[in-house]
Nucleic acid binder design. Structure first.
Lengths: 178, 178
DNA sequence: TATGTTCCTGAACACTGTGTTCGGAAACAA
DNA sequence: TTGTTTCCGAACACAGTGTTCAGGAACATA
């Protein structure tokens, strides 16, 4: 991709350090010096590549997003009680397998921006499985799912992904098939 | 309430300035100096009353919350398709009448903390109208409502509160009455 | 392998915002 | 009036940001 290997090295190190540190202490309290240190990169080098923390996050996010989307679409053939909810099961399983990561996304620790992007992504998934959907319904379902995940990870972590999916589908299916 | 009038004056001025400024430019970019200036209060005085921005917000929030709750409970007798949704109509009307305020709450501009508290408050309302409710369902409905309001104010502001309520109730009622 | 370009580095700098301290002036309750 | 409490503003130390620059290292190319 990148012509110069040094650029690739540096950027990979920085995004890697960002993810590591976000898992350890969230995004808001992170400093640029901290990220550069962890990446073993000079602080001035950071600014040669990114304008600020948010800029780096933005860049890293599309990667994470693509990875997530791939992980979901692997199991896209799954059956669901309503096509709009096809995303639920693979997504819930991904959440269950990467709880710390998703706690960052769903909870408030991910800098707002992450949260917004995740919600938008969920809305996309719903739209894909549900052509011609009412936009109000799409956002309502996305919000319901996000809140459910947040509640799951924060308050009822003993539940399995399967249990959450079943209860969520049982709740939302009647709303969608009217 | 307060023994000393100066304390009351100062704290009222500060919370007032906070709300004003939050409406103008959100919470995150606010500085303590800015708040103190707007309140016409010395910066050191600010720190004599509050540890930091968040502390002041916390204090102001319970007021706002109480005001909101009162505004809702005035119209608590309203009919709804399901008791758990009784909060929707008065809340949506309050949102419609105070769009700038709620755009702060629902959107990401309110510092995360606000957002969390609002969601918790919505969950409370739902629980009150729906004793013995499944906690997953409560959070799902609260999340759905929050996302709906965010979508409304951000993407479809031309809708009236009445329209939003009708569509939201039509969507969620089948989910709740099973 | 030699050459010219590009990138990385570390230190320095100016700047903004934070939170604390303190002595004198003003407002307060009694 | 008197003694207490609060307010003020200026000063201070500190942490983080974003920029600049000169020298050295890594690179692509021929």
């Amino acid at each position: 991709m990148s012509p110069d290997r040094r650029i690739r090295r540096t950027q990979q190190a920085l995004t890697g350090a960002l993810v590591e540190l976000m898992l350890e202490k969230g995004f808001d309290t992170l400093t640029v010096a901290e990220i550069a240190d962890r990446a073993d990169v000079g602080r001035s080098t950071f600014y040669a590549h990114y304008a600020d923390k948010e800029d780096l996050l933005q860049g890293s996010l599309s990667e994470l997003r693509d990875g997530l989307r791939a992980a979901i679409e692997d199991e896209a053939g799954a059956k669901a009680s309503h096509p709009a909810l096809r995303f639920c099961r693979p997504m819930a399983e991904h959440v269950g397998d990467n709880r710390r990561l998703h706690a960052l996304f769903a909870g408030g620790r991910g800098s707002g921006m992450v949260q917004e992007l995740m919600r938008e992504m969920w809305a996309d998934f719903i739209r894909e499985g549900w052509p011609g959907a009412d936009p109000l319904a799409v956002h309502a379902v996305a919000g319901a799912f996000e809140a459910t995940v947040t509640w799951w990870l924060g308050t009822a972590p003993e539940l399995s992904a399967e249990q959450v999916v079943l209860r969520f589908e049982a709740l939302m299916t009647p709303a969608l098939s009217r």
